[in-house]
Amino acid sequence: MIPFLDLKAQYKQMKPEIDAAVMRVIDGAQFVLGPEVAAFEARFASYCDVNHCIAVNSGTSALHLALLAADVGPGDEVITVSMTFVATTAAILYSGAKPVYVDVDPVTWTMDPALIEAAITPKTRAILPVHLHGLMADMDPIMEIARRHNLVVIEDAAQAHGAEYKGRRAGSIGDLGCFSFYPGKNLGAYGEGGAVVSNNSELAKRVSLLRDWGQESKYNHVMHGYNYRMDGIQGAVLNVKMNYIEPWTEARRSVAAHYDRLLEKQRCVRPMPPAHSRHVYHVYAVRLERRDEAQKVLQAAGVGTGIHYPVPVHLQKAYADLGYGVGDFPVTELLANQFLSLPIYAELTPQQVSEVVAELEKTFLVEVA
């Protein structure tokens, strides 16, 4: 059996450190925010090459607060993509704004900058690109368009911890960057967690106030706020994991390179990151015309897989009121029908990668040439 993800193997690697860190929080009784969270914020800000990091209770909360800090609200529109987890759209709706989708690039699978300007209206307030699977969107043209139209850029970097675009880290290019620390992420908490990063001191201050009931000091509330604080145990766990994120990232990239070599001549489309990007492979997805059959073959062989994402947000029943339908975003819809995510994590061995590919090759018997 080769699982899609093996968090137990990761925990075994650092069990004494994790256990000690958790007990430190319990002994100190600093259960909400506190020194462990503050220490993590400082380390993660440095890692992202930004001045500020505000830790929150989920990646969704990070997106919501980033939008509110940027004064996105009712009557505004936010340009984003449908090839993402629903949280991206949900956060826009939480702010009172309307999501406006553009299609993704057929090679990078991230927001297609060439489609952005046609989607801009007088109501457009922000652009929210999604760094999909661990690959950053094409940020230079996105930023150029945003600056020309006086728009805010918020990076959804929930899958892109440590990813780079032309030498710049995810979260450091836009006005704000948002991360998730859901347990399965490249940097995952032992529960929910998230963060907003920024080089803009005023925006960072607003996020910090908003996450903690809008209070500048205890019982001194200066704006409407939320209970979006990170708890101390998650800060402690993430602090320990910061010691490992770069080795883990390079291990994931090595696994991806092994997949690339073995799949080079096979009938599937592999990730093709631009040379200027550092892909961190939160997901290693291939494109297969008969994806569902391939997944069944792998499942029967004991290989875990995933699909990120089988139904684009614009075709989800919950978001039908946005007015989109089948055919509106053909690249996104094609990818949703073809993506198959293969196992990838730092502890995956070369032998296991070879076994996954050997089983996958059997599916090419049923592939369309």
Rank of each mutant, 00 (worst) to 15 (best):
Q10I: 12
I307G: 05
S46I: 04
L63F: 04
V25D: 00
A256R: 01
Y244S: 09
P122K: 02
G174K: 05
R261F: 10
V100S: 05
S58Q: 02
H161C: 13
V331R: 02
N200L: 06
V368Y: 10
D212W: 06
L263C: 11
L262D: 00
L176C: 09
P35C: 07
A114D: 08
L7Y: 01
I54R: 01
V130T: 11
Y284V: 09
V72Y: 00
F4N: 05
I173T: 09
V368R: 14
A42R: 14
L335T: 04
A39K: 14
V280K: 04
V107Q: 15
P274W: 05
Y228A: 14
R253P: 03
P122R: 02
T108D: 07
A369L: 14
Y228P: 04
D112A: 15
Y47P: 01
A204R: 01
Q316V: 06
E359Y: 07
L203D: 03
K296D: 11
A257M: 13
G167D: 06
A336N: 13
P183H: 11
K185D: 12
L238E: 00
V366K: 11
L209I: 01
A55M: 15
L342E: 07
L288V: 06
I18S: 09
V153F: 00
D27V: 04
V152Y: 00
E367F: 06
R168S: 13
D212I: 12
D328S: 08
V50C: 03
M230D: 00
T124M: 05
R169A: 12
G323H: 09
R278Y: 09
E250K: 13
